[in-house]
């Protein structure tokens, strides 16, 4: 997996590079918007970009990419504090936003989530605990053994595993299956939980009354800043 890191602060760029390399990513560094444009001649799986760069705003670069139909997921780093600034970044086409100063652990978690979400046509393999899910083939395995699963259960599990460690609202989960009564979602989730438990899965789908559901992931970084 190749990642482009656009950061003019050399020390920080170096630390990010080290960390990501340790986790098995291929890292390319760029110290300015101009340099990033050059490097972007080749494709990347994801881009991590600072906002304030010596020759411009990282957001403008993202807008440029999006205008050129380049959908590479972008994680913006920035020192801007207020939520408006974060939203400005997301509106400009960035996929996620990590305010400085951040933890390298969180950076990695966000990057993982970003890559997970943007499966693209080739699909991704999602993993939580001893459960793995192949989005391309629609197969679920617990400890390497395939678990048979209905279409509704599979789509629910996919949504929850894509956002493992985050609470997914009822609205989002119901979006995939508009049919069914008031309790259709609860019934499907009950079946999913039972199916996973019967096959020895060690993940927990927790209910937060009035808010939504989530796969409790002890290792996932909290999405909140």
């Amino acid at each position: 997996m190749k990642i482009l890191v656009i950061e003019d602060e050399k020390a920080l760029a170096g630390l990010i590079e080290q960390t990501l390399q340790k986790s098995g990513y291929g890292v390319t560094l760029a110290g300015s918007v101009a340099e990033a444009r050059e490097k972007l001649a080749q494709p990347f799986e994801a881009i991590i970009s600072d906002r304030r760069l010596p020759d411009g705003d990282g957001l403008d670069l993202v807008a440029e990419l999006r205008a050129a139909n380049n959908a590479t997921p972008v994680l913006m780093l920035t020192a801007m504090g207020l939520p408006q600034e974060r939203v400005k970044g997301l509106d400009a086409g960035a996929d996620d936003y990590l305010p400085k100063p951040f933890s390298l652990y969180e950076l990695q978690a966000r990057l993982r989530a970003l890559l997970r979400r943007s499966g693209g046509p080739q699909g991704v393999k999602l993993a939580s605990g001893n459960v793995t899910l192949d989005t391309l083939h629609g197969t679920v395995q617990v400890d390497g053994k395939t678990v048979p699963m209905g279409k509704r259960e599979l789509s629910l599990l996919t949504e929850l595993m894509r956002r493992a460690g985050q609470v997914v609202s009822k609205d989002v989960l119901e979006h995939g299956a508009p049919s069914g009564g008031r309790n259709a979602l609860e019934v499907a989730l009950h079946r999913l939980r039972k199916n996973l438990a019967d096959h020895g899965a060690d993940i927990e789908i927790a209910t937060v009354r009035g808010v939504g559901y989530w796969i409790v992931d002890e290792n996932a970084a909290p999405a909140a800043q």
Partner: peptide, 18 residues
């Protein structure tokens, strides 16, 4: 000041974490 402090702090945190 707060803005200027952010980058060195981010570096410090990243160094410690790595």
């Amino acid at each position: 000041t707060a803005h200027q402090l952010k980058t060195p702090l981010a570096i410090m945190q990243a160094r410690l974490e790595s």
